[in-house]
């Protein structure tokens, strides 16, 4: 059994809620905890800087859940490996300290888990509501099913688990 960490990153506003909503949906479903007895841990964060101080050395796999803005169609699912995060390792300021910068710093400090990637859904840039946009909300259920399946396979070290996400 492997230790898998699923971390939803977000804020209370609009599509930025995605990480929290996905983490909450996974936690509520109960499938993960019932199947593995707690080897998969689900948590949520309000700012990526906290990732840096998390004890990841004993963790085999980390899946970060976050809203994405890449110019793709709103609702499009994304999967990015750690070294694909644009800007990771660049000089930065505290206000611009995002997931990429946090991962860059963790790598520089030698604290990376064996595997880490980001799963997300393309946010709707025109959406100004407090809840998720319709496009992201409709993509959320399938997204959570995919993350749950992946986390379960990883925790049992299933041969088809996502060893090198693309």
């Amino acid at each position: 059994m492997k230790r898998v960490l699923v971390i939803g990153i977000g804020s209370p506003f609009g599509d930025d809620r995605l990480g929290w909503e996905a983490a909450e949906t996974l936690r509520r479903s109960g499938d993960i905890s019932a199947a593995t007895g707690g080897i998969i841990e689900i948590s949520h964060l309000d700012h990526p800087g906290s990732l840096v101080t998390m004890p990841w050395r004993d963790t085999d796999c980390v899946i970060l859940l976050d809203a994405v803005r890449s110019g793709a169609l709103p609702g499009t699912p994304h999967c990015l490996a750690a070294d694909e995060l644009a800007g990771a390792g660049l000089a930065c300021s505290s206000h611009g300290f995002g997931v990429a910068e946090a991962v860059g710093l963790i790598r520089a400090l030698g604290g990376m888990p064996s595997r880490l990637w980001v799963r997300g859904i393309e946010a709707d840039p025109s959406w100004a509501g407090m809840s998720l946009s319709p496009a992201v909300a409709s993509a959320l259920p399938a997204f959570c099913v995919a993350v749950a399946k992946e986390a379960l396979e990883l925790s049992f070290d299933h041969p088809t688990a996502n060893a090198n996400p693309a």
């Binding site: 101080t53 390792g89 660049l90 000089a91 930065c92 910068e101 710093l105 520089a108 400090l109 030698g110």
Partner: peptide, 19 residues
């Protein structure tokens, strides 16, 4: 140029700062 680059040469100091 920044903390990430500094962390590669001064990891203990950066870890102390983060703590």
């Amino acid at each position: 140029p920044g903390m990430v680059e500094m962390a590669q040469r001064h990891p203990d100091e950066v870890r102390r700062g983060l703590m």
